[in-house]
Amino acid sequence: MNRITQLFNIKYPIIQGGMIWNSGYKLAAAVSNSGGLGLIGAGSMYPEVLREHIQKCKKATDKPFGVNVPMLYPNVEEIMNIIVEEGVKIVFTSAGNPKTWTSWLKERGITVVHVVSSSKFALKAQEAGVDAVVAEGFEAGGHNGREETTTLTLIPMVKQHLQIPLIAAGGIATGKSMHAAMILGADAVQMGTRFAMTTESSSHQNFKDTCVNAQEGDTYLTLKELAPVRLIRNKFFNEVQEAYGKCATTDDLKALLGRARAKRGMFEGDLEDGELEIGQIVGLINEIKPVSDVMAEIMADFEKSVATTFSF
């Protein structure tokens, strides 16, 4: 047992990323039932849809699970009230100032974790009173920090400043990479891409098929002027690159992005005009499997790595 398994009352120090359009109750429940911590991704849900997923998750697992809330999304106040009303005990916050909601949540008996991309923001989260932080390297899929700091660099940098538990994220999909992150100072790991590529993920089969066929170097970080996002190259991505070539303004990029691109790509399976958000590590994942198999493989790989680590 370590600080994270103790904090969440889980068997393994593995947290599933709360990804938009991938992280419905089926995925969260499956990860929790397999010994990790499952997260429902509130970022792609209207408030009442979130309530429904929380209620279904409570029926699908008797293990701890949480909700990931991007704080810049609309309806955040309504979302937080639903989380409290439904008795959720763990909240991961991201994309905003941790001071905004941490005290309010903790006063209501909720464990709070904040996602950061730098040591500076990790310290701000610690000062805000969060129970743990996720330090996410820029290998990660979806929206990223602007610093472009890799996980291998970020984790030891954050660790030297932090007293609270540290969760590593970005480019982690195997037991070996989990072990490496923990050697660098992490208490646990969060995996998004690995769990997006499972049977229980709520994303469209078209998206999953595209991801398992992706190779090393097929993802790119773009749209830094709006909110940096890592995507697989497709027609939409090429249109963004063409816009940059024509010296597009921020307003031009906003108009090109429009609304619901991520939903179109990941949830509805539009492989041409949708955003296909996924991490760099997708090049290592070649098969869609049930969560239980993925968790068993990760832990077997981790234990083998620990057992065979050598010293000079």
Results as ranks from 00 to 15, higher is better:
Pro13Phe: 13
Met19Glu: 14
Ala42Asp: 05
Ile14Phe: 05
Gly18Tyr: 10
Gly18Lys: 06
Ala30Phe: 09
Gly41Cys: 12
Tyr12His: 10
Ala30Tyr: 08
Val49Trp: 14
Leu50His: 01
Glu48Asp: 12
Lys56Phe: 00
Leu27Pro: 02
Leu50Arg: 00
Ile40Cys: 01
Glu48Tyr: 14
Ser32Ala: 06
Gly17Ala: 13
His53Thr: 01
Lys56Gly: 00
Leu37Val: 07
Pro47Met: 06
Ser34Met: 03
Arg51Cys: 06
Gln55Cys: 01
Gly35Val: 06
Cys57Asp: 02
Gln55Glu: 03
Gly17Thr: 05
Ser34Gln: 02
Trp21Thr: 10
Tyr12Asn: 07
Ala42Leu: 15
Tyr25His: 15
Ser44Asp: 10
Ser34Asn: 04
Leu50Trp: 12
Ser32Asn: 04
Lys26Gln: 14
Arg51Phe: 13
Leu27Ile: 03
Met19Asn: 15
Ala28Val: 08
Met45Pro: 09
Tyr46Ala: 14
Leu37Arg: 11
Gly43Tyr: 15
Leu50Asp: 03
Lys26Thr: 13
Leu50Met: 08
Pro13Asn: 11
Gly36Asn: 02
Pro47Tyr: 11
Ser23Glu: 12
Val31Asp: 12
Ala29Leu: 11
Lys26Leu: 12
Arg51Asn: 05
Tyr46Phe: 15
Lys56Met: 05
Lys26His: 10
Ala42Thr: 07
Tyr46Ile: 08
Tyr46His: 15
Pro47Gly: 05
Gln16His: 08
Ala28His: 09
Glu48Trp: 02
Ile15Tyr: 00
Ala29Asp: 08
Asn33Pro: 02
Val49Cys: 04
Lys56Val: 01
Gly17Asn: 01
Ala29Gln: 07
Ser34His: 00
Ile54Ala: 00
Leu27Trp: 08
Asn33Cys: 02
Gln55Lys: 00
Ala30Ile: 11
Leu37Lys: 12
Trp21Asp: 13
Glu52Asn: 01
Gln55Tyr: 04
Ala29Thr: 05
Gln55Pro: 03
Ile54Met: 04
Pro47Lys: 10
Ala42Gly: 12
Gly43Leu: 11
Leu37Ile: 12
Tyr12Cys: 03
Leu39Asp: 09
Ala29Asn: 11
Leu27Cys: 01
Asn22Phe: 11
Met45Trp: 09
Pro13Ala: 03
Gln16Pro: 10
Gly18Ser: 14
Gly17Phe: 12
Pro13Met: 07
Ile15Phe: 07
Leu27His: 03
Pro47Phe: 09
Leu37Cys: 09
Ile15Ser: 00
Glu52Lys: 04
Ile15Trp: 01
Met19Trp: 15
Gln55Ser: 07
Gly35Cys: 10
Gln55Met: 07
Gly17Arg: 06
Leu39Tyr: 04
Gly41Ser: 14
Ile14Ala: 00
Leu39Pro: 10
Gly24His: 09
Ile20Pro: 15
Asn22Met: 03
Leu27Gly: 08
Ile15Pro: 00
Tyr46Gln: 13
Leu39Thr: 13
Met45Tyr: 14
Ser32Met: 06
Ile40Lys: 03
Ile14Asn: 05
Leu39His: 07
Val31Phe: 13
Ile40Ala: 13
